[in-house]
Amino acid sequence: MIMRAASVSQGRSVFLRVLVWTLLGAAALILAILIGVVVGETPLPLETVATVFANNLWGATYPVDRIDQGIIWSYRLPRTLVAAACGAGLALSGVVLQSLVRNALADPYLLGVSAGASTGAVAVTVLGIGGGAIGISAGAFSGAALAFLLVAALARAAGGGSVQLVLAGIAGSQLFNALTSFFIAKSANAEQARGIMFWLLGNLSGVRWPDVTLAVPAAFFGFLVCLWFTRAMDAFTFGASSAASLGIAVRRVQIVLIGATTLMTATMVSLVGSIGFVGLVIPHAMRFVVGPRHGRLVPASALAGAVFLIAADIASRTLIPGQVVPIGVVTALVGAPGFALILISNRRRI
């Protein structure tokens, strides 16, 4: 009886702890979104933002300037939501890849997945592959999947080690970046080339509500998949053989997780271009905060990735007055030092 009471008490304690952290995480994300809407080239008071939200969400009829209405509802809010979805999706992709390949440097950018997605999206846009029947997101997904398969095959042919995988990823990234540049030089006019090159550096300026309906479901789906397989990812930390000995269906789990990662990466790249270092730095930062267990690491990385990319988007809009800096430049300025620290701290294992 006493043991049962203790078990019930412990269960309630765990539930309350999870509930508290969930509420704190949701509050942090909502606050970050509000800051992303308020702060920009033209700062807007929180009262105006609340008025616009009330008019559009609950059918209120408060008077508000039409320009402010357009800036908040049609520009900043969808941009901020897509930034949050992209940050969460890329961070989750980094968590999955680092777990599956057991490499501290694995992320969609370094393993060539982002470069492959960029090539697929540009091929559909510039070359017109598919004759209009294939969308940019489908082209990006195909390119990302092809890039990962190529990198995995090359790494396996080279010995299948951790170092070989990173080197194969670098080679794959260079190959697909070269293909992208070739497609642009061959088929794009000057205006298209300039727009695509700016987009490839990461650009949220053209994001609107239809993009939200792609980015948010993709990130949420990937988040649910990662949550479902947290125990499997814990097992993969000790290698595929150890995971199999614990009853994990290794091949099925790998296919599902890599498919979810490819979907998230391809969707985000097709919308905002290639953004590096998010999937590399955020998971490592969260491991210092919540530890290596994926039951905590997955939600923490998703939240931190979302908040980080919202902050990077704010910086991209405000660093230079009257000019938008590509968000990939901002993430690289933060991520490159983080990448260097990871290299140094893992020099004995990679």
Score class of each variant (00 low, 15 high):
residue 2 I to P: 11
residue 4 R to L: 09
residue 7 S to P: 03
residue 7 S to L: 15
residue 10 Q to N: 13
residue 11 G to Y: 13
residue 15 F to Y: 07
residue 19 L to C: 12
residue 19 L to W: 01
residue 20 V to Y: 11
residue 21 W to A: 06
residue 30 I to S: 03
residue 31 L to F: 10
residue 32 A to S: 15
residue 37 V to A: 01
residue 37 V to I: 07
residue 40 G to S: 10
residue 40 G to D: 03
residue 41 E to G: 08
residue 54 A to H: 14
residue 55 N to G: 11
residue 59 G to F: 04
residue 60 A to P: 00
residue 60 A to I: 00
residue 65 D to W: 07
residue 66 R to M: 04
residue 66 R to K: 04
residue 68 D to V: 05
residue 75 Y to E: 12
residue 76 R to L: 07
residue 80 T to R: 03
residue 82 V to L: 06
residue 86 C to P: 04
residue 94 G to F: 08
residue 100 L to F: 08
residue 100 L to A: 06
residue 103 N to I: 08
residue 105 L to C: 01
residue 108 P to M: 07
residue 111 L to R: 06
residue 113 V to G: 00
residue 114 S to V: 01
residue 116 G to L: 09
residue 116 G to E: 02
residue 117 A to N: 00
residue 117 A to V: 05
residue 118 S to T: 07
residue 120 G to K: 01
residue 131 G to S: 11
residue 142 S to W: 00
residue 143 G to A: 12
residue 147 A to F: 02
residue 148 F to Y: 12
residue 153 A to Q: 12
residue 154 L to K: 01
residue 155 A to D: 13
residue 156 R to M: 09
residue 157 A to P: 13
residue 159 G to T: 05
residue 161 G to Y: 00
residue 166 V to Y: 03
residue 168 A to V: 08
residue 168 A to K: 06
residue 170 I to Q: 00
residue 182 F to W: 03
residue 188 A to W: 10
residue 200 L to Y: 02
residue 205 S to N: 13
residue 209 W to Q: 14
residue 214 L to Q: 12
residue 219 A to M: 06
residue 220 F to V: 14
residue 221 F to M: 14
residue 226 C to K: 05
residue 231 R to T: 14
residue 232 A to D: 13
residue 233 M to D: 04
residue 235 A to R: 12
residue 235 A to W: 06
residue 236 F to D: 10
residue 239 G to C: 10
residue 239 G to K: 14
residue 242 S to P: 03
residue 244 A to G: 10
residue 245 S to N: 15
residue 245 S to C: 14
residue 249 A to H: 12
residue 251 R to Q: 15
residue 252 R to E: 15
residue 262 T to H: 01
residue 263 L to Y: 02
residue 266 A to T: 00
residue 269 V to Q: 03
residue 271 L to S: 08
residue 273 G to P: 09
residue 273 G to Y: 10
residue 274 S to P: 13
residue 275 I to Q: 09
residue 275 I to Y: 01
residue 277 F to E: 05
residue 278 V to W: 00
residue 280 L to F: 10
residue 282 I to C: 07
residue 283 P to I: 00
residue 294 H to E: 11
residue 297 L to T: 07
residue 302 A to D: 05
residue 306 A to H: 12
residue 308 F to Q: 09
residue 313 D to M: 06
residue 316 S to W: 08
residue 318 T to C: 13
residue 329 V to C: 07
residue 329 V to G: 04
residue 332 A to V: 04
residue 335 G to H: 08
residue 345 S to W: 11
residue 346 N to L: 15
